[in-house]
Design a protein around this nucleic acid. Structure first.
Length: 585
RNA sequence: CGGGGUGUGGCGCAGUUGGUAGCGCGCCGCGUUUGGGACGCGGAGGUCGAAGGUUCAAGUCCUUUCACCCCGACCA
């Protein structure tokens, strides 16, 4: 493509309302256009990147047998009511619309239901399974807040694949095949060495864990806990944690005492008032489970209670903080003074392991404005039979399995895979018939990669102070060709190499603008992040013909056309390879 | 949804106690330039986010509203 045919231009300034580096650079370079918060258009250069990413993902999904489809964006209410995902109280980021007749519709935000229906319409025998189906299409999610440029949008491009298996064992195999395909995708996208498979919460999809693919980046929204020297990575919300032991514990037990602290709420304020460290305080929260059971959960000061972990310990599906009335009834105090002392018998007590191995600790007094000091297990209240891990891991914590201190990293989610069991297939009455003629549940998995988000991640993590830096596999063009000067010989050589590169399969954009000065062309080549830059000028024609420079390096090479093309194709400069080259000249 | 901030040519910004809307980049024309975002001369382009109000007079003051950004909460 010639630069003069490209309608977009570059800009020295980014719009003031964009803060994220990915969006600033992509807009300055003319790759995307912001239509509104969380919705970006892809312009010619940006679309080329999107297509490259899509093709890599498509190839890897096809390689494991994935069948590509395209579902509809418009989704019927009735379908999602069958899986209890229509109600805004359950799924709160629907975009909903309606037909002229008043019939309610949703814009697809995930496609378990339509895929399950489509598969179930045809695949009914055990002989039809297992299978993978997927699509690459726009998703619509009414996020409360779009942010970080194209990393969190309300309309975005996603590849979503779904697996359908005849058993949990078969599902597990498919799941690992898909996981391996994901690893290959990230490798090919050039972010393989900074992208890790992590354990994450299953969220709304499943009570189980899910796996995420997280790319390390300081601008990331997620926090990862990594066991050094291993491939064990956890998202913060599910990282098992062991609190570091406290080294300042009294040897002797002191007498229990009650201290008045009117209006003192919050661990730090409390510790300050009592003259103790925050680690000597205890945070007790009351929850009500889906079966109505009241649970008191306690962690040592400085930690937060992790509802995901607590839910798993209690083996319940949902959990909510007890309301004021329940708190008053159970503890006899206003919110903020709950403790474990003298609780009614029917309250189940779950204590985090961070509360063990302490002497003379503080705890809410279960009386408004009262705090109990110098509490000791065994003496003032029975020591729990078992301590659990119900806290959100924080920096400094240990991996309970290895005892190693976690490395903590910021990251961006680049993909997510979930085991779905038979939640959706059962709900939609989609089953298969086994060899014996009996009806069986179908085990599903789902596998997502945000195509447009991955583009943002790549833009974000590789960019330098001169602009974007695309890996070759996703760059909109491989070569940015620059002619300096427009005398006959320079133009003739530029035209020749432009065609020669193209016939040999290299994508090239030729900055043929007659009025642009050299500095402007260099700056654009850098800003656009094209992997190779080729210069033709009177100067280069006096040497070997062309100057070649990689975007990611400062070195330049003076090369002839054969060597130039081979370098760009990633081939050795051998007679055999030279013979295969085609030349238009 | 809570807190904070910003809306003025395509982009970045200035605009004083209310008194004829400006600058840089970009764009158009002519000329000189050509290895890291050139220079000169001449041009085009704005109902100042929107609506209402105060005033002889509003980009500026008041009210309402919309949009965007940041922090937090949320995030299938």
């Amino acid at each position: 493509m010639k630069r003069t045919q490209l309608f977009t231009k570059t800009s020295k300034t980014a719009p003031a309302d964009e803060v994220a580096r990915n969006a600033q650079l992509l807009i300055r370079a003319g790759f995307i256009h912001k239509e509104m918060a969380g919705a970006y258009a892809f312009l010619p250069l940006g679309l080329r990147v999107i297509e490259k990413i899509k093709n890599i993902v498509r190839e890897e999904m096809n390689a494991i047998g994935g069948q590509e489809t395209m579902m509809t964006a418009l989704q019927p209410r009735e379908l999602f009511e069958r899986t209890n995902r229509w109600d805004d109280a359950v799924v709160d980021n629907w975009f909903k619309t309606e037909l002229k007749s008043g019939v309610k519709l949703g814009l697809g935000l995930t496609h378990e239901e339509p895929f399950t229906i489509s598969v179930g319409e045809y695949a009914q025998s055990y002989k039809d399974f297992p299978l993978f189906v997927y699509q690459i299409a726009s998703k619509f999610r009414n996020e409360l807040r779009a942010k970080s440029g194209i990393l969190r949008c309300r309309e975005f491009l996603m590849k979503d694949m779904y697996s359908f298996a005849r058993s949990q064992t078969e599902h597990d195999e498919l799941y690992e095949q898909a996981a391996a395909a994901y690893t290959r995708v990230y490798d090919r996208l050039g972010i393989g060495d900074i992208t890790f498979r992590t354990k994450a919460d299953g969220g709304y999809f499943t009570e189980n864990y899910s796996d995420e693919y997280q790319t390390l980046s300081l601008i990331g929204e997620d926090t990862l806990f990594h066991v050094p020297g291993t491939d064990k990575w956890f998202n913060q919300e599910v990282a098992p944690s062991q609190a570091p032991l406290l080294d300042n514990q009294d040897k002797e037990e002191k007498p229990l005492e009650n201290v008045e602290g009117e209006g003192v709420i919050g661990v730090n304020a409390l510790a300050k008032m009592l003259g103790i460290t925050p680690e000597q305080t205890t945070k007790t929260m009351l929850y009500v489970t889906d079966s109505g059971e009241v649970v008191a959960a306690a962690v040592r000061g400085g930690y937060d209670i992790n509802e995901i972990k607590l839910r798993k310990v209690l083996n319940v599906k949902s959990l909510k903080l007890a309301d004021e009335e329940t708190v008053r009834k159970v503890t006899g105090a206003e919110i903020g003074y709950a403790g474990l002392l003298n609780l009614p018998k029917e309250v189940r007590v779950i204590v985090d392991e961070s509360c063990a191995n302490r002497t003379n600790f503080e705890m809410g007094g279960n009386q408004t404005n009262l705090h109990a000091m110098n509490v000791n297990w065994g003496r003032d209240l029975p020591s729990p039979e078992k301590f659990f891990d119900i806290k959100t891991a924080k920096e400094g914590d240990l991996d309970p399995e290895t005892g190693q201190i976690y490395e903590v990293e910021r990251s961006i989610e680049a993909g997510n895979i979930f085991p779905l069991e038979s939640k959706y297939t059962d709900a939609l009455d989609v089953y298969y018939t086994d060899e014996k003629g009996e009806r069986q549940s179908i085990i599903m998995g789902c596998y997502g990669i945000g195509i447009s988000r991955v583009m943002g991640i790549i833009a974000e993590v590789f960019a330098d102070d001169r602009g974007l830096v695309w890996p070759k596999s996703v760059a909109p063009f491989q070569v940015y060709l620059i002619n300096i000067g427009d005398d006959e010989e320079v133009l003739r050589e530029a035209t020749a190499i432009y065609k020669d590169l193209q016939v040999n399969g290299a994508e090239v954009i030729w900055d043929d603008r007659p009025e642009a000065r050299p500095g402007e062309k260099f700056a654009d080549a850098d800003l656009m992040g094209i992997p190779w830059r080729v210069v033709v000028s009177a100067k280069t024609l006096n040497k070997n013909g062309f100057e070649l420079k990689a975007r990611a390096s400062d070195e330049t090479l003076d090369v002839g056309p054969r060597e130039l093309i081979l370098k760009i194709l990633g081939q050795e400069f051998t007679d055999e390879n030279v013979d295969k080259l085609k030349f238009v000249r």
